[in-house]
Nucleic acid binder design. Sequence first.
DNA 1: TTATTACTCAAGTGATTACTTGAATAGTAG
DNA 2: CTACTATTCAAGTAATCACTTGAGTAATAA
Lengths: 221, 221
Amino acid sequence: MSSGNFKHDLFSQFARVGKALSNGNRLELLEFIAQAERSVDELAQVAGLTMANTSQHLRVLKQAGLVTCRKEGLKVYYRLSGDDVLVLLDALRTTAERHLAEVKQLVQSYLTTRDELEPLARQELLDRARDGLVTVLDVRPEEEYAAGHVPGAINIPLQDLESHLADLDPKHEVVAYCRGPHCILAFDAVAKLRDKGFKAARLEDGFPEWRQAGMPVETTH
Amino acid sequence: MSSGNFKHDLFSQFARVGKALSNGNRLELLEFIAQAERSVDELAQVAGLTMANTSQHLRVLKQAGLVTCRKEGLKVYYRLSGDDVLVLLDALRTTAERHLAEVKQLVQSYLTTRDELEPLARQELLDRARDGLVTVLDVRPEEEYAAGHVPGAINIPLQDLESHLADLDPKHEVVAYCRGPHCILAFDAVAKLRDKGFKAARLEDGFPEWRQAGMPVETTH
DNA sequence: TTATTACTCAAGTGATTACTTGAATAGTAG
DNA sequence: CTACTATTCAAGTAATCACTTGAGTAATAA
C-alpha cells in the first residue's frame, strides 16, 4: 500500500517547477524569452545580470522543463518549451495581482502617474483599428516586431520614439503595446506621447497575450 | 524614465508566489486545502509534518496570497483564497507533467502497476452514470464528500473499502475518484477493487477539477 | 482557578540558493 | 596555428530556507 514515497516524489517534482519560478530575475528572463528566442547575452543585458549568473538561471529554467535551447554557431538560443508555460506565467501573474496587495498598489501607483487613460481591450483595438480611428504602435525592439505583431501595427522601438514622432498622425489616437501587462515599455511610450500632446492609451496587455488569445498575427518577411 | 525599480519590484512580488510553490510539502498542503477548508492539525497529520512546521508553511502560503484563514473556537481553518489558485496549481501540474521526464516516468510506472485501465473522462462518466451503467465511488474522507461530490456518487473512504465491498454491485463497473489527478487514493482503490474481481477505473482527475469544469455538484445537508 | 487544546512565535542548525570570480570549452575568424 | 567570442563550469561567500525545539498565546473545559 504505502505509496507515501510516490506522493512525496511527485510533489518534489512539482516543486522543481515552483523553484524555477521563485526568483524575480528568473521570472524576468522567462518573460523576455516568452517574446521570442533569445541568446544568453541578450538576456543577460536586459536583466542586468552577468553572463555566468544568467547562464545559471537559464540552467535552472531548463532543468525545470520551462525552456529549451539550441546552439547556432557561437550563440545559444533559449525559448519557452511550450504554450503551457505561457499559461503558467499568466496564472502566476493573475494570482499575484488578485491577492497581493503590494502588486495591486505597485501597478496602481505606476498607472496613475504614467497612464491616466484606461488600457484598451483587444477586440476594441481591432475594431477601432479597422475603422481607421487609431494608430497601433508596437514599441518593442525591431526583432520582436518582426517575429510577430498586431496586424497593421507600426513599429517604433521606445528609444526611437522621440525622433519618429513625425510618423504619427496627431489626429489619431495612438494605442501602444509591448511585451505583456507588466512590461514597462508601453507605459513609458504612453507617457512620452501624452507629453507631446498625442492622445495615447495602452493595450490592456501585451503581444504574447494577444497571440495566446487567438487574435490575428502579422509577421515581417 | 528609469522604472527599473518598478520592474524589479514587480518581478520580486511575482517571485513571492513562486517561492510559495517551491516546496513539495507546501504543494501537498495546498492540494489538500484545495479540497475543503482544513484545520492546521489535519494538515499537519496528512502531510506528516509537525504542527510548528505546518504552521510556518501555512504562513508562507498566506503571505503569498494563496490561502486565507479564519479562526473558529480553538481551531484555525485554512482555505484557498480564490479559484485562480486552482488554475495556478493546475498549470503547475500540467507544465511539470509535460516537460519533466521524471514526472512522466513516475506517473507512468505508478499507473501501470496500479491501474491498467485508462482513466475515464468527465462527460463520459456522467453519461454512463445517468444510464445506470457505472457505480461512481468517492473514496475521500466523509467530510470532504459532504462538502461536495459528483452527483450520484457513493462515499466509501479508502480505509473502509474492504469492509464495504458488499455495498457494491459486482455487475457494475466502478469508477473511483478522489482529490485530483495525482491523488493516490483513487489509484489504491482501483487496485483493491480489481484485486477483488471488480471492473474498476479511475476518473481522469479529481473532484476539484470536476467542480472547476462547471460539472454538477451535489452536497450532503 | 488550573489544565488542556490548537496554534503561533522565536531561536538555532544544517542545507540550499544567488551571485561573484576566474578558469575551461566550443565554435569562428584570421 | 593563434586570437576572439559566447557560453558553461567550478569554487567560494553571504543570504535565505526548512525544520526542530521549546516557549508563548488564545480559547475552552474542569
